[in-house]
C-alpha cells in the first residue's frame, strides 16, 4: 500500500509518500500565495522523487491550514492529529509534541497509542513562530539556518523583553546599535521563544518524551533553550518539518483499510 500526506502550512508545504513503514520520498516547498497550487506542486515533486505516478498512490490525506483546498485528498485531518501521529511513529515513547510552525505554535499531549489527549494552540499572533524568526534574522543580516550556529558563539545572553514581532525587531536594531554582540542577541531571542513556548506547554502539562516538530525545530539554539526551560531533553526528528505530512500519510493508511 502506498499512501501520501500533504501538509499545506502558512509558510511551507510538505508532502510525504509512504509504503508501509518506509518513507519513499518527501518534498518541501514554499507555500506562496496559492495554497492549492502549492499542494499540487509539492505532491508532484514527491511523486517524481519516488518515481511514482499518482495512480499508484492508494490514498492521500491533507493537513495544515490549507487542507481544505487539496482536491485529490481522500480526507482532511488537522495538523494536531497529524503531528501527533507522525511524532509517535518516529518516537513511540513520545507523550508531548511541540510544533512551532510558520505562524502558530501548538503543544499536543498524546497517549500510549498515539492518540491526541489534549492540545493547546497559540495562533493569536506570530510571536515566537517561524515568521518571527524570519523577520529577526533579516534584521540581524543572517539566514534562519545560521541562527543556531550564531547562538553557539555567545558567552552571555542579551535580554529581549518584547515578543511582538514588530517591537522585537526594533529592540534588536537598538541592541545592535548599542554594540551588543550578535550571538548574544540571537541567544536572547531563542531564550525568549523557549520561555513563551514552555509557558504554553506547562499549561497543558509536559510529560516526557518531548518531541519538537515543525520548521523551527531545525534551529538547534531554540531546541537547546527549550530543553533548558522545560527541564527535559527535547528530541528532534531528522527532518522535523515533514512530521505533519508523515502523520497524514500514516492516517491515509487507515483510510485505505477502512
Amino acid at each position: 500500500m502506498i499512501t501520501g500526506g500533504i501538509d499545506v502550512g502558512s509558510l511551507s508545504s510538505e508532502a510525504v509518500l509512504l509504503k508501509g513503514g518506509e518513507i519513499l520520498s518527501y518534498s518541501i516547498i514554499d507555500t506562496g500565495a496559492d495554497a492549492r497550487k502549492a499542494a499540487e506542486q509539492v505532491y508532484q515533486a514527491a511523486l517524481e522523487r519516488a518515481g511514482l505516478e499518482s495512480s499508484e498512490v492508494d490514498a492521500v490525506v491533507a493537513t495544515g491550514y490549507g487542507r481544505l483546498v487539496v482536491p485529490f485528498a481522500a480526507k482532511q485531518v488537522t495538523e494536531i492529529s497529524c503531528h501527533a501521529r507522525g511524532a509517535f511513529f518516529l518516537f513511540p515513547e513520545v507523550r508531548t509534541v511541540i510544533d512551532i510552525g510558520g505562524q502558530d505554535s501548538k503543544v499536543i499531549r498524546i497517549d500510549g497509542r498515539g492518540n491526541v489527549v489534549d492540545f493547546m494552540m497559540n495562533d493569536k499572533c506570530a510571536a515566537g513562530t517561524g515568521r518571527f524568526l524570519e523577520v529577526i534574522a533579516r534584521a540581524l543580516e543572517l539566514s534562519v539556518a545560521e541562527l543556531g550556529m550564531e547562538a553557539e558563539k555567545a558567552t552571555r545572553v542579551a535580554e529581549i523583553s518584547s515578543m511582538c514581532t514588530v517591537f522585537a525587531e526594533s529592540e534588536v536594531v537598538s541592541l545592535i546599535a548599542q554594540g551588543v554582540p550578535r550571538p548574544e542577541i540571537v541567544r536572547g531571542l531563542h531564550q525568549a521563544i523557549a520561555e513563551r513556548t514552555a509557558g504554553l506547554a506547562q499549561r497543558l502539562g509536559v510529560v516526557p518524551q518531548v518531541v519538537m516538530t515543525g520548521g523551527v525545530a531545525k534551529n538547534s539554539g531554540v531546541v537547546a533553550a527549550l530543553s533548558q526551560s522545560l527541564g527535559v531533553k527535547v528530541l528532534v526528528p531528522q527532518e522535523p518539518q515533514i512530521v505533519g505530512a508523515l502523520g497524514a500519510a500514516l492516517l491515509a493508511q487507515k483510510v485505505v483499510q477502512s
Binding site: E79, S81, D104, N115, V116, F119, M121, D123
Partner: peptide
C-alpha cells in the same frame, strides 16, 4: 483557527470513542 480547533477536538473525541 476556530475550525481547526473544533475539528481537532472532534478528532480527540473520535480517538476516545475508538479507545
Amino acid at each position: 483557527a476556530v475550525l481547526t480547533r473544533a475539528q481537532a477536538f472532534l478528532e480527540v473525541l473520535e480517538g476516545r470513542k475508538a479507545a
